[in-house]
């Protein structure tokens, strides 16, 4: 315990910085994931056959060991934060994509027909009907993938991306368990806090009518 306190007084500032780095890498990767996966997921609902193929491929990529993916990016993008973010981004895509696809596909067909019959364009249907109704499912995907990313972002350290992984890797290399703890505990806290925060966000973005309906049910 003493060693940890001592560690904190010496490295406190640095730790804050590393935490920030860690958060930065995972959040940027998650945002990129949302930016790509949500529209792609909606688009895929228009091509159910293509959807199977795309999700199959992504599913396979997902099973690649993360180290391998990171190593794969070194010759292409060098070392640092950018390749780390890009590699993590790949992991964030699938859960968000799959949930968006399922969520949008799950919208009642009668509602879509009502929308079409009253003269909504394809875009208006997405905006006023499909996405709002799929929000809870999409958000669940975003939450899940962001929390995973915070864990995986530890690996960024491996290709010089920084973050709390630096402590863990030093700890492993130097046989100093306190370093590992000092790295791992904040990662866990970060993941929990993010999950909590995103839970709130989910509440804000879910349309009021749907929340009320679920409470009533």
């Amino acid at each position: 315990m003493d060693t940890i306190l001592q560690f904190l007084s010496t490295y406190g500032g640095e730790m804050l910085y590393k935490t920030w780095e860690h958060l930065y890498i995972s959040v940027v990767a998650a945002l990129l994931g949302i930016l790509i996966a949500v529209p792609l997921g909606v688009a895929l609902t228009r091509f159910p056959k293509g959807a199977e193929v795309v999700m199959g491929i992504l599913g396979i990529i997902q099973t690649f060991p993360s180290f391998a993916i990171l190593a794969f990016f070194i010759p292409l993008l060098g070392v640092g934060k950018t390749p780390a973010i890009i590699a993590l981004f790949f992991y964030s895509v699938l859960p968000i994509l799959r949930n968006t696809y399922t969520g949008v596909n799950g919208v009642q067909k009668s509602l879509l027909e009502a929308g079409r019959g009253m003269g909504m364009t394809g875009w208006e249907r997405i905006r006023y009907v499909e996405v709002p109704l799929a929000i809870p499912v999409i958000m669940a995907g975003i939450r899940l993938s962001t929390v995973y990313l915070i864990g995986w972002a530890t690996l960024a350290s491996f290709i010089g991306g920084g973050g709390l992984g630096d402590y863990i890797f030093s700890g492993l290399n130097l046989y100093q368990p306190e370093f590992i703890i000092v790295g791992a505990v904040p990662v866990t806290l970060l993941a929990l806090l993010t999950d909590l925060l995103l839970g709130k966000v989910e509440g804000w973005v879910t349309p009021k009518g749907m929340k009320k309906m679920r409470e009533a049910a």
Binding site: R116, G117, M210, M213
Partner: peptide, 22 residues
């Protein structure tokens, strides 16, 4: 078709009110 449909009222059997709208 979009313009046409906006000029024709349409009531479907399942009612089809949007649950997320007032």
């Amino acid at each position: 078709p979009v313009t046409l449909r906006r000029e024709i009222g349409y009531v479907i059997q399942q009612i089809g009110l949007f649950p997320h709208m007032t």
